Amino acid sequence: MNSSVSALPLSTLSPANEALTLRLPSSLQLKQQLPLSNALTRQVADHRQAVRAILDGEDSRLLVIVGPCSIHDPQCALEYAGNLARLAAEVSDEMLLVMRAYVEKPRTTVGWKGLAYDPHLDGSDDMAAGLSLSRHLMREMIDMGLPVATELLQPMAAGYFDDLLSWVAIGARTTESQIHREMASGLGMPVGFKNGTDGGVTVASDAMRSAAHPHRHFGVDSQGHPAIIQTPGNPDTHLVLRGGHGGPNYDRDSVARINRDLHKLAIPARIMVDCSHANSGKDPLRQPAVFNDVLEQRLQGDRSLIGMMIESHLFEGCQPLGSALQYGVSITDGCLGWTGTEQLLRQAAGQLRTQRPERQPA
């Protein structure tokens, strides 16, 4: 899909080592071009409330954020979303499945930064087209009945998608950022802060406490003007465990220790486990083992474990970005294939049905 909102060159600066500035549409302009209907706006509000109810213990279903490590191909993303929508309806009595629609990717050094940055996969960095395509795809997923989740990496991009999202992640590398904490304090949906890359949860705990408070901070309004942003504080944050340099942190002893730390800080004990990254040793095919271990802890009574995250695509593994790409295979981190994902979630729903007859109605 090509965007009809083009980037407008303001000036080419000289000498050659200075920046080239291109003007993007404001978030308001893009929302007006690709609006969300009243019915879908209500649906997003209902999905956000469903996530909150799980966080608050009012709904005992399992929250599962599942989907590609990153979206790079609109066709296979929508095919995956169609599969997930059908499965979500089938397991909705025990799980709330949320589509992972990641259009920004953090890079340790350099590399493809995601669909919002480089939608043509050729280094042209047509961000106007990327923002438009990303919003279009998320809107299509919502129209299938799915809640949508993403990681917000660039705060200036958040306004292009904030009305579409039911859940947001702040990544391990940005959880410590004051700018991201301020942004999270003004978001209208639940936010999961990942533990730092060292595997510790102190930084994420500080982030949750910061985001819960109101802030005034520098920002950009919906028309693209510099502004002072005043936020109300976000009470709907939680911790996402993704392991660290020392290895996994989803095991029983780690979860028990983290719960004690959260209790000391008067932070609600609501924990999601990212089954990928260091928790799986970066082996996507180990994600089911992580998922099942956490599920067993939950079935044995640990109510702090409110959900899991799975990196999953149509087909397993990953591939380098190149001219001939295999359909439905990640170009960033390796993913579990759809067949394995579907089997995993169906089996988990069956366990929850048979082993937890006391489950509260959704």
Rank of each mutant, 00 (worst) to 15 (best):
N2P: 13
S3N: 10
S4C: 13
A16E: 06
L30R: 07
K31L: 11
Q32H: 15
L34F: 09
S37V: 06
V44H: 08
V44C: 02
A45D: 04
D46S: 15
R48C: 09
G67S: 13
S70W: 09
D73W: 10
P74S: 14
L84M: 11
A89V: 09
E94W: 13
R100Q: 06
R107N: 00
D125N: 02
M127F: 02
P147L: 08
T150G: 07
A158N: 03
L165S: 02
S166M: 05
G171T: 06
A172G: 01
E176L: 05
S177P: 01
M183W: 01
A184D: 05
S185G: 03
G192Q: 06
K194C: 09
T197F: 00
G199E: 07
S210M: 07
P214C: 07
P214Y: 08
H225F: 14
P226Q: 04
Q230V: 12
G233I: 08
H238S: 10
R242P: 01
H245N: 10
G247W: 03
V255Q: 08
R257V: 02
I258F: 00
H263T: 14
K264N: 12
S276H: 15
H277P: 07
R286S: 13
A289Y: 13
D293A: 12
V294C: 03
L295D: 01
R298H: 01
D302K: 09
M309K: 06
L314C: 11
G322H: 12
S323P: 10
L325A: 11
I331W: 05
Q351V: 06
L352G: 05
R356D: 13
E358M: 08
